[in-house]
Nucleic acid binder design. Sequence first.
RNA 1: GGCGCUAUCGUCUAACGGUUAGGACACGGCCCUCUCAAGGCUGUAAUACGGGUUCGAUUCCCGUUAGCGCUACCA
Length: 493
Amino acid sequence: MATSSSSGSIANPRVRFAPSPTGFLHVGSARTFIFNWLYARRNGGTVILRLDDTDVERNTDASVNSIFEGLKWLGLGWDEEYKQSERLDLHRKIAWSIFERGLAYRDFTPAHTGDSEKSGAQGTWLFNPGMRELSPAESDRRAAAGEPFALRFRVPRDGQVVRFTDAVYGEQMKSGADIEDFALLRSDGMPTYHLASCADDADLRITHIIRGQDHLTNTFKHVLIFEAAGFAAPQFAHLPLLVAPDGTKLSKRRHGPVVSVTTYRDAGFLPEAFINFLCLLGWSPKDDRTKMSGEELIEIFSLEGINRANAVVNFKEPAITPEETFDPKAVWLNAEHIRGLAVEDLSTRLLPIVREQFPNVSAERMLQITPLIRERIKFLREVLSAADFFFVDQLPPYDPAELIPQKGDTAMARKALEKAQIVLPNVEFKHDPLDQALRAAAQELGLKAGQMFQPIRVAVCGRKNAPGLFETLEVLGKEVTLIRIGQALARVG
RNA sequence: GGCGCUAUCGUCUAACGGUUAGGACACGGCCCUCUCAAGGCUGUAAUACGGGUUCGAUUCCCGUUAGCGCUACCA
């Protein structure tokens, strides 16, 4: 009877992330990588990156780049790296060892024409007629004659049941009568995914296979391969899938760039926030924590916390604004992590983004501005719209009506600005002196503080919604402040 | 069609068979306040359905329904 080991914790686990380079790095793949990484780091193990590139037809360099780009951004790293395409000899050796034991056979049936439609109403397809029972002599003869063939696994059909214990889904069993004779080697000699994956997992001494639930039923085949090749099966842990709001599997074609890791990066996500968000999909710390650092995650991550139901990534299907592109919780978590960053750290991350548009901004300047916007941005890129008035020489045109304060009129705006013009030149441009001077000025004019501040704010920022006035003026400086107030006065009419 | 997996607020989730079913996001209200944020308080909102088992089911069992996955010489 085929049975995988259901061993508990292993001292130094070896885990692997095995993407196939047939598209960009998907958020679901990223989560799989993160869970593997967390498990290894938690338990003093080793992370292996393996490119499962046995499908030469569909592999692309662009995809390889996208995967590395995405992983690099996550910043987690890995310990060993392999490419399946460089290990084909091993795969073939293992395939033929299975054949030697009589557990695989040659199938000379021409390859399927490609359409996945439909073994259909017929029920499960198990094997191609005639091939499983071909005599060894006949099989050898046809092979010697140069006839192409695929190598198929001879799934035991004498009432056998294949079993394994999944760390997430528990005891699994399936009758051999429900497992088709899957291919090991294609007719061009290339190994299939199932074979290459198992051969490498065994050879690389993988102890824990943590991967998407879409592989749960494939695992029966893998258990069969491990056993046939004489290897102990590793521990399996399958992860619930990430799905779109409509319940369908995330795909580029249907859902667009939201499923690509680099989209999050380019929108101004912090990798630690993205990781935090992904961890909360299909896994729970079992307490009320939501915001967690990488260190915290390593400390508390365990396979026991993984759920079994698929998790929805809650983005709006036709996304209008950039913000709608992402799950609101991801956005909130990002803002939360941004707020939690030290000013110096955040400033360093903001600077390169700012310099894309304003190359002359200095690190010192950025450091002054950062605390003013730290609690006002949800994405790093928002620095451009939140702090633009600090960077431009000339404010873009704004509606002069904005200068008019609450329950006020043009005359009030003019009065406030003119008063500011008189008072400000003699004030030290620091928060407290500015606060005192401007409040005193408001009182003299018989205005509420807000009525005094708004015209000034709009004059220097070009809009109503902005950081606190005094800290803004302090950073902007006396000269610029007075110039902009003068310009506002000229437009207020 | 066959086989497998799953089912708690709109979403992510918590709850040794005994809780007023908890938290977070989102949404609404209030407070704070120089605007916007941030922050504090607060409100609306869930155990898919039907049967069992049990003194007692969100929890265990069966069925129904729904969703997802696999069913390739893709991975």
